[in-house]
Computed example of a mutant assay.
Amino acid sequence: MQARDFAAPDKERVLATIDRWIPEEGPLLPILHEVQEDLGFIPDEALVIIADKLNLSRAEVHGVMSFYHDFRKEPAGRHVLKLCRSEACQSMGADGLIDAARRLLGIDFHETTADGAVTLEPVYCLGLCSCAPAAMMDGDVHARLDAERLATLIGEARP
């Protein structure tokens, strides 16, 4: 999926978000969260503006953004499938489900299908260890997942 142009209205929205949060202590994370919620991702142009307004280096802002796996630099697909990679899920067959998801979708982690339907992301614990393996599709958790249920989830997300 192609990143969209960073237009003047987007810049104004980023600046308004910064203005809202800058009086607070430690505003960087709330700013990043709000920009992503508003634009669907955090474009490089926004990182430059955020760094400038907070008097931080671009490397500092990029470092925070890249540390947290939920921030994205490109728009996600219409659906986001997160597969748990924790030890509990791995011990219950998550690696096989990950391989199946890659095969069914034709993509790897941090990629989006060509039709823009699904983005595949790893997650390192959904808190469902006793019900492993687990996944999350668009914020809804799915426990005791097997290949058939995974295929159904993916099928429902694709046109």
Results as ranks from 00 to 15, higher is better:
95 D>A: 12
28 L>H: 08
62 H>G: 08
57 S>W: 15
93 G>N: 12
50 I>S: 09
72 R>E: 13
22 I>T: 14
47 L>A: 07
74 E>L: 02
17 T>F: 02
39 L>A: 09
22 I>Y: 01
24 E>R: 04
53 K>C: 05
69 H>E: 14
18 I>C: 06
61 V>I: 12
56 L>A: 08
14 V>S: 13
34 E>G: 01
59 A>P: 04
92 M>H: 12
22 I>N: 09
44 D>V: 06
48 V>F: 05
99 D>Q: 11
97 L>P: 14
74 E>G: 01
78 R>T: 13
57 S>C: 11
29 L>F: 11
11 K>Y: 00
103 R>H: 11
83 L>F: 02
11 K>R: 15
51 A>M: 09
78 R>L: 11
48 V>C: 05
101 A>L: 11
76 A>R: 11
100 A>E: 14
16 A>F: 01
83 L>E: 03
40 G>S: 05
16 A>L: 07
13 R>V: 13
89 C>I: 05
44 D>A: 09
54 L>H: 11
56 L>Q: 09
72 R>N: 13
40 G>R: 09
81 L>W: 01
87 E>F: 04
47 L>Y: 00
15 L>P: 03
27 P>N: 06
86 S>E: 06
23 P>S: 01
63 G>C: 04
60 E>A: 14
61 V>W: 07
17 T>K: 03
90 Q>D: 03
30 P>C: 02
61 V>E: 14
74 E>K: 04
10 D>Q: 11
16 A>S: 12
49 I>E: 08
87 E>I: 07
25 E>I: 15
46 A>E: 06
9 P>I: 10
81 L>T: 15
18 I>V: 15
71 F>E: 14
50 I>C: 05
38 D>Q: 12
14 V>D: 10
75 P>C: 04
34 E>S: 13
28 L>Q: 08
49 I>G: 07
62 H>F: 07
99 D>V: 07
89 C>E: 12
44 D>F: 11
63 G>D: 13
77 G>T: 08
43 P>G: 03
21 W>K: 07
31 I>S: 04
12 E>N: 03
42 I>F: 03
